[in-house]
Amino acid sequence: MKQREKLFTYVATLLFIIILNFLLPRLMPGDPFLAIYGEEAALTLSAETKQELIAQMSLDKPLWIQFGAYLHSLFRGDLGYSYALNAPVSSVIAGVLPWSALLVGSALILSTLLGFVLGVESGWRKGSRSEKLILFSIIGISGLPSFLIGVIFLLFFAAQLDWFPLGGALTPYSDFTGLTLLQDILKHLFLPAMALSLTQLSEILLLTRASMLTNLSSPYVHTAAAKGLKPLGIRYRHAGRNSLLPVSARLGVSVGSALAGSLFIEIVFAYPGMGDLLHQALLNRDYPLLQGIFLTIAVTIILANFLADKIAWRIDPRMREE
């Protein structure tokens, strides 16, 4: 796809998400105010504030005027107010974002590197016994949802073996600083990141492997062998380098699916990121928070896609032209 078409797709996606977000509570049967603010708000708010809010969101006006008001507040960066947590949604989300970024980022790096190397090696050794076995287990695991892998990890490595903490991102009420803090963070990060990267691994591995199989029968690989390159050079410098292209082109999708997977993983490990927050919002029926999270995730994924495209264009000289 050309760059401009992609840009259009992203803008349209954003619009679609905003419209979905706007319409969902308003199409629900019953009082839209309840669907927008949640029951918590209905209980705590006084009648005047309620009226005020209705007026502010034009809930008593036609749908398109409401949409205008909705867009208006969005552009001011106002994601609403969580009455369950008693804080603006935007600041609640900002508080958990770093943890989500840490988890998703480390899992992505891990799964991409590992998936790529395993994919290259598995393509190179296609058909051998060990390769078949690894491929088989990877395909098996790839079918499992992230929370299931998380649960299994939690049960064995944390609950039973007690190698890692059971949840959270930091040991509560400890005043670690410097290296010990870092160690604590990594210790809490390890299991969720491993579980998440395991779910992401298979896709990158299979993609790299399929691409390797095509590339290994390419003429330039033959040339590389004839040039007297060592097998490692043929594998990575030539075939591998080309197999990286589809991986980089899919980076955006990978970010999306890793983020989606992290929502579940965080719930399992009570890791204080977006997923954990989403879980709380769902339990509390905290709709403003829910909407804010949804919007943030969508925007993040769209931005990640955009950046990933830039990276792919950087890596593949053939795409730079466009």
Partner: peptide, 21 residues
């Protein structure tokens, strides 16, 4: 184009938000 647009955000996320309501 519609397919392209719907594929940007992983489907599970959209399904969750709809189901939540």
């Amino acid at each position: 184009r519609m397919v392209d647009i719907l594929l940007v955000i992983p489907n599970i996320i959209i399904i969750i938000i709809i189901s939540a309501y």
